[in-house]
Design a protein around this nucleic acid. Structure first.
Length: 456
RNA sequence: GUGGUUGUAGCUCAGUUGGUUAGAGCGCCUGAUUGUGGUUCAGGAGGUCGUCGGUUCGAGACCGAUCUUCCACCCCA
């Protein structure tokens, strides 16, 4: 007996219903991207390893799916290296390609490679799957879709403002209320690190700070001490632990801490600019919230950092993220091109909409009418009518076999086809069609012209 | 990558301290109804209990490995 088939860990099949729901989200995001002036691009599902490796930190490198070289991939490895059994050193010898890990780095590569064909500022969107060799959990898969919108070639903070509006627009269209757009700024984080004498410990400092709402103030301080951050520096942080109130009040408190840091002051200015603009413009359903503990993507973000969390009460990690990276294309040799962008996590948004029952009831693709098959002569008559209906844009289909009536009706019922047409011997002879409404059970016998009119 | 968790019929799940032939509901198939579905009634099919190995007279149950699911950490969408 054949072994039961399966799919790899962290991947999924999607049935017709799931695809319909996913398309609903895709289409919503896409429509909003286009309304904001973004243009679509696509990049290959795999890149040269050197394009991806080292761009996401050590953790990221570990999570990149590597593709084994074709042919005799071991033959070219020299014996000494082989004997060493050092997986890391070996990897670069036996694998030269890797699956896309996100859409931002491939986009940076794209910009550098096509810089002469691109009009800057360039606003692109990209909706494609990415792969991560992560251990699966709820809302965490090894293959999932990202929906990215980025702008390169403009340092203007109006872009950040527009991205906040874009988030708000998409989640409003999806009827997902109560979404929080958290914002922070890399300059503020490095400013704080500078002020407390942990200039060279930015990562340690932010990792500890990030745990504030999980492990509490005391533990965070302990961890910082443990990482070699001086006590007098931690004392300066005190106002940070009790940040509260409005965006304005929080920014004011930050200003106290950061008044000696040029970098920090710049970060505050940027935050204020964005907040002022958003306050003036207004948001439909989302909230913009300052969160100094937000420390994602520090490997390349240089200014604003965004993260979107689902409405309260839904246990789900972030459903979107993004930020400003002043020099991402620099690593590919193109200096002084600033970029800023955001991403939507399709798969997680799906889970949230499902949990809150927010999908519109009628999104499945379905035929409008099924023709019952009574036999060869009748079937041909049916197909003539079906041809006309399809020409008029009515999705119609004939049951392929002259099976028992009950079986055919049952099929129509299961498929939730709203109408059924019966053409038996008598209808065939009189050139008529018996149209049955499956919801009410009503039926009547009519001519083709009227049939088309009713179903159109 | 670390620690834990899950797996029994197509689906959701029972299955007692190890003990005959592993159950239920829903779904599926057939008939009552040979041109009328959703309701009802009667009958039926379907499982090497995730996989491999071990302990035992005997394993769905106990042990080990492995795969899978979900969860926490890490990180992230």
């Amino acid at each position: 007996m054949a072994k039961k088939p399966g799919i790899p860990k962290g991947t999924r099949d999607f049935g017709p219903m799931e695809v319909a729901k996913r398309n609903y989200i895709f289409n919503t995001i896409k429509a909003n991207f286009e309304a904001f002036g973004f243009q679509p691009i696509e990049t290959p599902s795999f890149e040269n390893s050197e394009t991806l490796m080292g761009k996401y930190g050590d953790e990221g490198d570990r999570l990149i799916f590597k593709i084994l070289n074709s042919g005799d991939f071991l033959g070219k490895v020299d014996d000494a290296l082989y004997a060493e059994k050092d997986a890391q050193k070996m990897t670069s010898k036996i694998s030269e390609k890797a699956l896309r890990y996100d859409l931002t780095v491939p986009f940076a590569r794209f910009v550098v490679q096509h810089q002469n064909e691109i009009e800057f500022p360039f606003k692109r969107y990209q909706i494609q799957p990415v792969w991560r060799a992560d251990r699966p959990q709820k809302g965490r898969f090894r293959e999932f879709y990202q929906c990215d919108a980025d702008v390169v070639g403009s340092k203007s903070l109006w872009q950040e403002v527009e991205f906040v509006q874009l988030y708000d627009a998409v989640f409003t269209t999806l009827k997902l209320k109560g979404v929080t757009i958290k914002i922070n700024n890399r300059k503020i984080l490095s400013g704080i690190a500078e002020v407390i004498g942990a200039h060279d410990k930015l990562i340690d400092f932010t990792v500890a700070l990030d745990k504030l709402d999980k492990i509490g103030e005391e533990k965070v301080k302990e961890e910082m001490l443990g990482k070699g951050i001086p006590q007098e520096g931690i004392d300066k942080l005190q106002p940070l632990f009790s940040l509260s109130g409005t965006f304005e009040e929080q920014v004011a408190a930050l200003g106290e801490i950061l008044n000696t840091s040029e970098d920090g002051k710049k970060g505050i200015e940027e935050l204020q600019f964005i907040d002022n603009a958003i306050t003036e413009l207004g948001l439909q359903t989302a909230k913009l919230q300052l969160d100094v503990t937000l420390a994602r993507g520090l490997n390349y973000y240089t200014g604003a950092i965004f993260e979107v969390s689902a409405p309260k009460g839904v246990a789900m990690g972030s459903i979107g993220g993004g930020g400003r990276y002043d020099d991402l294309t620099g690593i590919f040799g193109l200096k002084d091109v600033s970029g800023v962008g955001i991403s939507f996590g399709l798969d997680r948004i799906y889970l949230v909409l499902e949990e809150l029952d927010l999908f519109p009831p009628t999104i499945t693709e379905n035929i409008k009418v099924l023709f019952i098959n009574f036999g060869e002569a009748e079937a041909l008559g049916c197909l003539k009518a079906i041809k006309e209906l399809r020409k008029q844009g009515v999705a119609a289909e004939m049951y392929p076999d002259a099976a028992k009536m009950k079986k055919q009706m049952n099929f129509a019922n299961k498929r939730e086809v709203p109408f059924v047409v019966m053409v038996g011997e008598s209808e065939l002879n009189s050139n008529t069609f018996t149209l049955k409404n499956m919801a009410t059970g009503e039926q009547q016998t009519i001519f083709l012209e009227e049939l088309v009119g009713r179903l159109k």
